[in-house]
Design a protein around this nucleic acid. Structure first.
Lengths: 137, 137
DNA sequence: CTGTGTGCAAACACTTTGCAGGTGT
DNA sequence: ACACCTGCAAAGTGTTTGCACACAG
């Protein structure tokens, strides 16, 4: 069930830090912040390097940004089928558990279509639901 | 068409800064950030005072927080009928125009109901649509 | 008069930038 | 060999906290 991603397939140079970050995303269901990553890799890499790695991955369409509702930023893997370095395509719901703090993509739930008043052109949509997750009952 | 709000009705002490902030919200359709407010009041009040005023207004249910999709935070007036110091109740769509940067509440469009997988309890919901607004064609 | 609001300075968290040196291909 | 990654230091942005003084009620 774990996605197998390789740096090579994204035309990225193979480095230890990138491997570790990619690995962390692959094995963690919840979205990760820069701080989460720094810790999960045991402070082995500089804060700045992780930021730059995230930026690179964003541009390549490997991960996408998730806002956690309180101003924090997290990241999670994209659906490999819909995202490339050209375009990101996300229409799933994000859920943040107020108890454990985990933020996750609920890929099984798509955002319903919404008709806006005349004159509004929709380009991107972002839906965050906060509440409690199954693990926290 | 402009909402008339008074500090007194919220049991708040009447001060110049609060009046100005409340006034700014009343006359501006788009959501305002702390920085917007600071400028719109001609840097007359300290940055910190505005933050504290916003915090107070949030707690009283006068305004609500809006995320602008890039990590920025803005604020806009609540519907006086649904928000109190006890609870905030928001189920309208937020729209951010990528051209003019304005973020607005679209009170006429409610968020459709969404059924989450088993075990997820919804408490709050936040929907941000980005695109272009009528003013920017 | 009393409690609350304000201004200033400083701390804090998060993210970005510049530069020198190291590494993948 | 060369381009690109990385680490360190420092700067930038947005927000919060502590404290002394000012002001509304």
């Amino acid at each position: 069930m774990v996605k197998v991603l390789s740096l090579k397939s994204f035309n990225l140079r193979h480095t230890e830090c990138r491997e570790s970050v990619l690995h962390a995303f692959s094995y963690c269901k919840a979205a990760l912040s820069q701080g989460d990553l720094e810790q999960s890799i045991d402070d082995k890499y500089d804060r700045v390097t992780i930021y730059r790695t995230l930026k690179t991955f964003l541009e390549k369409g490997i991960i996408h940004k998730i806002l956690d509702g309180q101003g924090g930023t997290k990241y999670a893997l994209c659906e490999t089928s819909t995202c490339t370095s050209e375009t990101h395509q996300h229409d799933h719901v994000h859920f943040k558990c107020k108890l454990c703090g985990d933020t996750t993509c609920i890929n099984s739930v798509n955002i319903p279509s919404i008709s806006l008043p005349k004159g509004y052109q929709r380009e991107e949509i972002n839906l965050l639901i906060e509440g409690s997750c199954p693990n926290c009952q």
